[in-house]
Design a protein around this nucleic acid. Structure first.
Lengths: 139, 139
DNA sequence: CTGCATCCGATCGGATACTG
DNA sequence: CAGTATCCGATCGGATGCAG
């Protein structure tokens, strides 16, 4: 049973804009969070690597997202001189700070979309998915 | 300075779909998270109340979002018999579980979009925004 | 009060092909 | 390897008006 006796919870500081809206304006577009995850968690930092591990993502859209993310300070383009040209993308501090959001989305998905996400359709906790001690950094 | 020596962090359970993608499929549409916040945090549970506190949101889109959210089990329609007809929307357990995601988005926005969000343009922590003890429920 | 119907312009992003 | 260019259909959601 669900109790519903909790009163409104209001921010004690007046806000002239909504922080959720602001955050989602950038992060809410298709593929954006997945790209940040690829870079920050899976360490797929190169253009074609990202395409490889992200079925459905096209070069055009990836390119657009990378530019947006760079423009908005989430990622940084690192060009290593060599032939052929090697480019890496890495998270800035701002980009790093999106990972806790990602974690919550994983947590939610692993609980409520278990049927889509797992073969055995059983919900899992984030600790079951990432028991590694390095993961605590983001939990 | 940002260190970047962290190795890839992989889920120990194989996944046939991405939990982030699944979560965002529902929650990523415009206004959706704001509506959940209105109901769950601000306790604006009625149709016109929501319109009032959500500048830019139109009846059509609100109606669409409410239906999607109900279909997907995030909210429940409660019709109180009376004239005129009063309808409340409340969060299900699944809906409640989205609030921690919201919190992380607020936290991110209050830090990195402080210039848009606050008059004084100074970043704030989530504890500064919601020092109430009831808020701990979601932090 | 709580929506729905219709219309429509804008945006988004997928397909495909091409380049330095 | 790391992207761009062009095209285009689909979707989204804003405006407006109406209804139970």
């Amino acid at each position: 049973m669900k109790q519903n006796t909790i009163p409104p919870l209001l921010p004690v500081v007046p806000m002239k804009a909504c922080p959720v809206e602001s955050s989602m304006g950038v992060l809410g577009r298709k593929w954006t969070l997945l790209i940040l995850r690829n870079i920050g968690v899976f360490k797929k930092e190169r253009f074609n690597q990202m395409l490889d591990v992200t079925p459905g993502l096209t070069p055009r859209v990836l390119s657009m997202r990378l530019q947006e993310l760079e423009r908005d300070g989430f990622i940084k383009r690192i060009e290593e001189n060599g032939t052929p040209k090697i480019v890496r993308w890495e998270l800035t501090e701002k980009g790093d700070d999106t990972l806790p959001i990602l974690v919550k989305l994983v947590e939610f998905g692993a609980k409520w979309f278990a049927d889509k996400v797992f073969e055995d359709k059983k919900p899992r906790t984030i600790k079951q998915l990432f028991p590694q001690k390095e993961a605590r950094r983001y939990l």
